[in-house]
């Protein structure tokens, strides 16, 4: 009897000394495999595929702001050379048309941005231009939110955000890219 009880006492405790080692091993494994950087990027909704080509005469109307980026990464806005730093304010002016000009859309929801690039355009430039166009819309959303609700756009509820996006819908059409400057390396 006495022997048995002493046996019990011994097996009562599991040796937890190696627990730390096991935990360390796992810890190091996860430390190594962890990537902390969050994936971020410019979110884009591509237009659905259709076999018909977009009408080209549409591009001439007052509703369209055509933005071209050629193979030398030069910017052409409505047929004139433009600077990328001015693109954002220019796009905003185009969409809102504060001076009621004839060559700009009557209402923000009529505005269409047409972005066209060459196959030789560098991706960095393309994304920079896209970023500016998106920034213009985001700034307009913010201004509209401030005007209507006195709050920045991000702080509004989902339904109010939708409402503002309905007033100023982001319409960005991307025409098929031209092919003048692609290098065949």
């Amino acid at each position: 009897m006495a022997r048995k009880s002493s046996k019990d006492r011994v097996s009562n405790e599991v040796n937890a000394g190696s627990m730390a080692d096991i935990a360390f091993l796992l810890l190091i494994f996860f430390l190594v495999t962890t990537t902390m950087d969050q994936d971020k990027g410019v979110l884009v909704r591509l237009p659905p595929w259709s076999d018909e080509k977009p009408e080209s005469e549409r591009l001439a109307s007052r509703r369209v702001l055509s933005v071209l980026v050629n193979s030398n990464d030069e910017l052409l806005v409505r047929g004139e050379m433009a600077d990328i730093n001015a693109l954002r304010s220019r796009t905003k002016e185009f969409i809102m048309n504060p001076n009621k000009r004839d060559d700009m859309p009557k209402e923000p929801k009529d505005a269409i941005i047409s972005l066209m690039n060459d196959r030789g355009t560098h991706y960095a430039k393309y994304l920079a231009v896209y970023n500016e166009l998106k920034a213009a819309y985001n700034e307009l959303y913010d201004e509209e939110a401030q005007r209507r609700y006195g709050k920045p756009f991000e702080k509004l509820s989902k339904s109010k955000q939708k409402l503002i996006k309905k007033i100023i819908p982001l319409v960005l059409s991307e025409a098929e890219s031209t092919n003048y400057g692609e290098e065949d390396k």
Partner: peptide, 21 residues
């Protein structure tokens, strides 16, 4: 350059993968 990017984009559109980041 945008050549290959456009091709990929077109292929994504054809496969109805329209949300792109």
């Amino acid at each position: 350059t945008m050549g290959i990017v456009s091709d990929v984009k077109d292929q994504l559109r054809k496969s109805e993968q329209l949300k792109v980041n």
